[in-house]
C-alpha cells in the first residue's frame, strides 16, 4: 500500500486552502505544533504544504499554474536512508514517510536529501517536521469517515486533490494517474514520488480557424 495525494492542476486555482487547512489541523495535531517566528512582525513560520505560483511562456501565450507542494511520500525516499538515527522512516504498511521527533537530532541532512524542499526545521524544538499525510486523522477510528482523510484534501474548494492508495490499481488515485497521464516532479532525481500531479487538459476552440476565416470573408467583419 502506498498512500498518496493527487493534485489535478487542471482544477487547482491556487487558493491556498490546502496550505492553511494543513497548518490548521496539524498545529494542534499529533505532530504539531507548527511554530511561527515573529508572527506580527516579519513573520516566518512553518508550513508543511506550500503553494507555488508559476508563470511560463511569453505574452499572450502565458500559462499560470499553481503547485501545492508537500511531502511526496517517495517510494525511494532519499530522506530516509540519510538519517543517522532512523528518525525518518517510511511506514511499511502504507508508505507514509514520518519523523520520530524523539530520535531526531535535528542534523537537517534529510532536508538536504529531500529533492522537494518540503521538510521544515523547527528551531524551537530542534527537530525536522513535515507532512504526515495526516496520519493522525486517517488512522483515528474515532473520526467520521469524511474526516479520515488529509485536511488538505478535505478542504480543497475545487476538489483538485484526491487521496488514496496508489498501489491499488482499482483506487481512484491510481486510475486518475493512469487515465490522465499523472506525472511526478523532478523524476530525474530518482526519488520516485508517490504524489502525482495531473496536467492541464485544455478544451480546444470549437470553431476552427478556417471556419472563422470563411465567416470573416463572407460577412466582411
Amino acid at each position: 500500500m502506498q498512500l498518496t495525494i493527487i493534485t489535478d492542476l487542471n482544477k487547482c486555482v491556487g487558493c491556498k486552502s490546502c496550505q492553511v487547512s494543513c497548518k490548521e489541523h496539524n498545529t494542534s495535531g499529533a505532530f504539531g505544533p507548527l511554530p511561527d517566528a515573529n508572527p506580527y512582525e516579519e513573520a516566518d513560520g512553518m508550513w508543511w504544504n506550500r503553494v507555488v505560483t508559476m508563470e511560463s511562456g511569453e505574452y499572450p501565450n502565458t500559462a499560470v499554474m499553481y503547485l501545492p507542494k508537500a511531502c511526496m511520500h517517495c517510494y525511494d525516499a532519499p530522506c530516509v536512508p540519510v538519517c543517522p538515527t532512523k528518525a525518518s522512516y517510511k511506514r511499511e504498511d502504507n508508505g507514509v514517510v514520518l519523523v520520530d521527533y524523539d530520535s531526531c537530532i535535528g542534523c537537517q541532512l534529510c532536508m538536504w536529501a529531500c529533492p522537494y524542499g518540503v521538510r521544515e526545521f523547527d528551531e524551537t524544538e530542534g527537530v525536522v517536521k513535515k507532512c504526515t499525510m495526516c496520519i493522525d486523522r486517517i488512522e483515528d477510528e474515532s473520526l467520521a469517515a469524511e474526516d479520515r482523510q488529509p485536511a488538505c484534501v478535505q478542504s480543497c474548494p475545487t476538489h483538485a486533490r484526491t487521496f488514496g492508495d496508489l498501489d491499488d490499481p482499482t483506487s481512484e488515485v491510481a486510475q486518475l494517474v493512469h487515465a490522465r497521464q499523472g506525472f511526478t516532479l523532478l523524476p530525474e532525481l530518482g526519488a520516485r514520488p508517490a504524489v502525482h500531479y495531473l496536467p492541464r487538459r485544455p478544451s480546444p476552440a470549437i470553431i476552427s480557424a478556417e471556419t472563422v476565416d470563411a465567416h470573416m470573408e463572407s460577412e466582411g467583419y
Binding site: 501565450n61 499554474m65 524542499g117
Partner: peptide, 25 residues
C-alpha cells in the same frame, strides 16, 4: 513544474517569500 514553455517565472513575491529560515537546504 510540468510546464514546458520558457521563460519560467515565479509569480508574486508577496506570496512566495522563501522559507529560508525553516528550510536550510
Amino acid at each position: 513544474t510540468g510546464l514546458s514553455r520558457a521563460p519560467h517565472r515565479l509569480q508574486d513575491s508577496g506570496t512566495t517569500k522563501p522559507p529560508y529560515r525553516s528550510q536550510t537546504q
